[in-house]
Write a protein that binds this DNA or RNA. Structure first.
Lengths: 344, 344
DNA sequence: GATGTCATCGTAAACGTTTACGGCCTTGTT
DNA sequence: AACAAGGCCGTAAACGTTTACGATGACATC
């Protein structure tokens, strides 16, 4: 079903058919109606390769994720919510979102380089942002429009959206200190991912602001999975002087963490105060209820999409946002997992 | 960086350059080496649009998912694991996997139709298969190679891979009956998705084979989320004669189900025997340990990819599998959530 | 030396679009 | 009546590939 067949059917030149379909001004309204009707009837849709080749544009936005389940930064439900928000924006512009999973055996940098050189997409959304991320420098050098989900030291002035990790660290520590806790552990993610540094620095700053000394023994980095949470708790309990409270960089950790406490005959909250990160379906039914923070991932997706469009020449007049660097605010959801020391 | 620029650089015709890059036989080994070196040096990669236009092939495989987090979630790492398996196969053939999320506002059929008409991919993997699924008929009619994750009544002879839901239903019921249970509930997913029918029919057949009457009051369909599990338990407990055991169509249900029991002062396992579906990281730390079934999602992904290649003309000689219709075997992982009636 | 074979390479068409350009016809203006 | 303006449309080039076809030259065979 090429445009040629459609044109022959209508006895019109393919040039006119193309103009009619693309809403150009110099075509008789009558003719346009005929063309649109015939296209609809014959189920004609412009071939994307032909169009891309001619205009150098694909009408596709790529969203990279990493599928390494062991070291994953976020899971299916996190990203699906974000995708959903992203699509509500792109749908209005006839842009298609495609997710580009980077396999666990694959290198994220090579992955992006392949995506770019094959000219898959007009713009890119990057996740799992590293502290120094060669993908960012590469995209800037190539002039590819992009936004990252998560900050980075690389690249200087590019758009990103991130969660308010420093706010969370500060508020969590303050809340625990207010509850009488002085020995507050940190369950962090592995180095590499930038949030690991941000979260830990904010935690240290918060401790310092309350006059509490930093103790590296109770800062533990590992996989942010349920099993990872179990292991973190394991290590903390094995210390000569275990902490009385812990701040988690990810709520999935809480699931294993709770279990490890219970296995030791301890009660989450009473015997160890816990503050998680994001309110999520998985952590929702923990008991005692996990104190954590809420945000709308759908809205994050919307903002990601808009920020990306703001960097694309064809859309920046519709989205005059400039460079967006936004720390997403998160709302405290108090639970019963972090009572004052000695309570209960 | 077009092939023309590369050819000029080398003082060779673009035809020869193309043949050299594509490993054709009729090119001097010496020349080929020069071309490959120059391509590497200049960072040349063939433009995908040009190539697709010429050969009518995209070297892309699409994997459709639905992003409605409210009504259905597989485990939090379900799709990531599958993607990872799929990629290990496609990487060997220089095929790129792209995930095509269908937004919650969008219709899955329209979504597939758009994907096809824009000629995004050479082949498709479908998930969330409906009992009668118009997408399947459409793809067959258009002659697009595809595989589905999940069976369907539509389409007749196409390739699919599915989990062994009838085996699980049968074994779960048998196991519970052996434990003395006679009033066994079913927590099922909503109608539409084919597995809802398969699981329920198998459950009914299993009951019948043990001489147990079917009671529609204890078959509950709803969202397969943590919250959905809570609600299912809520309804079961409100019955005049609650069941003594329940079989879950999805392990996420178990998380809310446990919580509802505990909120009622009941003990999962002792007061209500529970058998979940798949062993997953989220359900791993439930206590008592959830009896469930294990499979390798990575391997499912591998098989999906191979089955798809087997239907694609360009690869079917390398994967002479014919039409694959495979019910994936799952291994019982006994827990403590389904003790014999009256035990404990 | 004529002929055939083979390796290697260049030429040009084709894929399906979009769009700059020019041409025709109608309409309006003087 | 002559001319200008503008609406509408056809023509053809261009995007970056791949590939069928033919050309060239080297070499061997008789």
């Amino acid at each position: 079903m090429s445009i040629k067949a459609l044109a022959q059917q209508l006895n019109i030149s393919i040039g006119t058919v193309s103009r009619a379909l693309n809403g150009r001004a110099d075509v008789n309204p009558e003719t346009r109606k005929r063309v649109l009707a015939a296209a609809e009837a014959m189920g004609y849709v412009a071939n994307q390769s032909g169009r891309s080749l001619r205009q150098g544009t694909t009408n596709v936005i790529g969203f990279t994720i990493e599928t390494n389940v062991e070291t994953k930064t976020q899971g299916d439900t996190f990203f699906m919510s974000v995708f959903d928000g992203v699509q509500t924006v792109f749908a209005r512009h006839k842009l298609d979102l495609v997710v580009l999973p980077c396999a666990s055996e694959d290198d994220p940098f090579d992955h992006v380089r392949r995506v770019v050189s094959r000219q898959f997409a007009d713009g890119l959304i990057l996740s799992a942002t590293q502290r120094t991320d060669p993908r960012i420098d590469f995209l800037i050098e190539r002039g590819i429009p992009f936004v990252t989900l998560g900050r980075s030291l690389s690249g200087g002035e590019h758009s990103w959206i991130d969660m308010d990790f420093e706010g969370i660290a500060a508020r969590s520590v303050a809340r625990l200190v207010a509850g009488g806790h002085r020995r507050i552990a940190l369950a962090n993610t592995e180095r590499g991912i930038n949030l690991s540094y941000i979260f830990e620095e904010s935690y240290r700053a918060a401790l310092a602001s309350h006059g509490i000394a930093y103790d590296p023994d109770i800062v533990i980095r590992g996989e942010i999975t349920e099993l990872g949470g179990y292991r973190v708790c394991d290590r903390l309990l094995a210390l000569p002087e275990p902490p009385t409270a812990v701040v988690l960089v990810n709520e999935n950790l809480a699931i294993g963490f709770y279990r490890r406490l219970l296995d030791a005959g301890l009660t989450p909250g009473r015997d160890m105060a816990i503050i998680g990160l994001r309110q999520s379906p998985q952590a929702r039914f923990l008991s005692p209820a996990l104190t954590c923070y809420r945000l709308s991932l759908h809205d994050v997706g919307v903002e990601l999409a808009q920020s990306l469009l703001a960097t694309m020449p064809a859309y920046k007049d519709q989205y005059p946002l400039g460079v967006v660097q936004k720390i997403w605010p998160m709302e405290l959801v108090p639970g019963e997992s972090d009572p004052p020391l000695g309570a209960g």
